[in-house]
Design a protein around this nucleic acid. Structure first.
Lengths: 237, 237
DNA sequence: TAGTGGTCTAGACCACGGC
DNA sequence: CCGTGGTCTAGACCACTAC
């Protein structure tokens, strides 16, 4: 297989398109390993930098996933515009190249006494998470779910992306999503948790998720994050 | 200036952090050009691949912007979590490495007869845009603004990012944002515009933006996009 | 024309994962 | 141990921008 060096299209773009054709063919399924960098170099008669450039583009676009010491794997065959950017902060952060951690601090069934959830069930599955980047507090979240959700996720680590869980693993059929963001002032507890001063601005996000087959909301979500929080505090550099 | 080669921290990460320190110092302001790749190679005694890796990371994270033939420029000194991912589809698409175009098809003042806008003004500034990726229809948008907005943006090309305009250029003080997404079926007109079949699923997003000093909404926004629209249609490959 | 970033090669050694 | 991707070098030529 050869690429056209007379074209003024960069080799790594041509190679990227070739790889894309391959991974979209029926011969491959999601999770399959693609050719190694060495093999691609031989197959297409190009240098390693070219191969890596092509692969990195496809990783950035979500088609491939690299694992050091193992190989490069097909992550998805079609990239679609969906709920990901709306539902997953992890997704948005990852897109910016930021790694972060979520720590679950509370997890339990509670009585449904929180009217704002709009969930129609006597009991609710509830958990709270702290989010950090490089150990610095980013914000904290409260999740309220239909009680059946606890069963669905019994084997899932709730410190991972909940957006990914809902969209990619459970593939819940979302019918409706409502999101509200307002600016509020930090109270004492919030100021402590997020290492701010009382009265500092917080972005307060509320989200209601409606899933097919459920009356009322399926999930209610709250997230508070300082406005303009720096992901790379000067003292880390 | 030298980097520590005994550390097990990659050189390009060390270099990236060094550049970041420089960017954030008071000697530089946003828009300034940083050292060229050649200069960085000399200054830090590293190869070009290392320099480019470091710079690419910072571009991905939004700190720098490269311009072929000119240089590399400071885009921002602090990266913050804000409304960008919520307000700007362009932003999300760019983060995925996708380039796209917005075409304004209607632009005019209209009577405020659309109750859903929640804008309190007798007249409204209105425009519609078609969004495409590689010439393929992605979705279309309707914008309703407080009439004063038309004056503010008289010199701005409305085919560029409206989210960027609101957040970075006008710096409108957002107080509240409400967003609703539902799944609807495409009607005939929508099917034609988006090259779909009547009855296909559409994501229908509505957004209300409240800005300090304005009673009622400042902006109302509608966006319809096919669910699972492929950004890289097979026939392009 | 000079200087910038964009692309590309051929090579090297390292770190990680699985056998 | 071997094969994978991760990092890095020293060079080359091209494409674009500004003067």
């Amino acid at each position: 297989m050869k690429l056209n060096r007379k074209l003024h299209i960069p080799l790594y773009i041509q190679l990227k398109d070739q790889i894309l054709v391959n991974i979209k063919s029926d011969d491959y399924i999601i999770g399959d390993m693609i050719q190694s960098e060495q093999e691609l170099m031989k197959t297409f008669q190009v240098g390693r930098a070219t191969v890596r450039e092509a692969i990195n583009e496809l990783v950035k676009e979500g088609f491939l996933e690299k694992q050091q010491g193992r190989g490069t794997f097909i992550k998805r065959k079609e990239t679609s515009l969906g709920f990901e950017p709306l539902l997953s902060l992890s997704y948005s952060l990852k897109m910016r190249g930021w790694e972060h951690k979520n720590q679950v601090i509370i997890r339990k069934q509670i009585e449904n006494t929180v009217a704002e959830t709009l969930i129609k069930a006597p009991k609710i599955f509830y958990f709270e998470r702290n989010r950090t980047i490089d150990g610095h507090p980013l914000g904290f979240e409260k999740f309220y779910f239909q009680p059946d959700f606890e069963m669905l996720v019994s084997e899932y680590n709730l410190e991972n992306s909940i957006g990914k869980l809902i969209l990619e693993i459970l593939k819940l059929p979302i019918e409706r999503l409502i999101q509200e963001v307002i600016i509020v002032k930090a109270n004492e507890q919030e100021a402590n948790l997020l290492k701010l001063n009382v009265g500092d601005d917080l972005m307060f996000m509320k989200r209601w998720l409606y899933v097919k087959g459920f009356e009322g909301a399926y999930q209610y979500y709250e997230f508070k994050v300082p406005v303009g929080v720096s992901a790379f505090p000067a003292d880390l550099l």
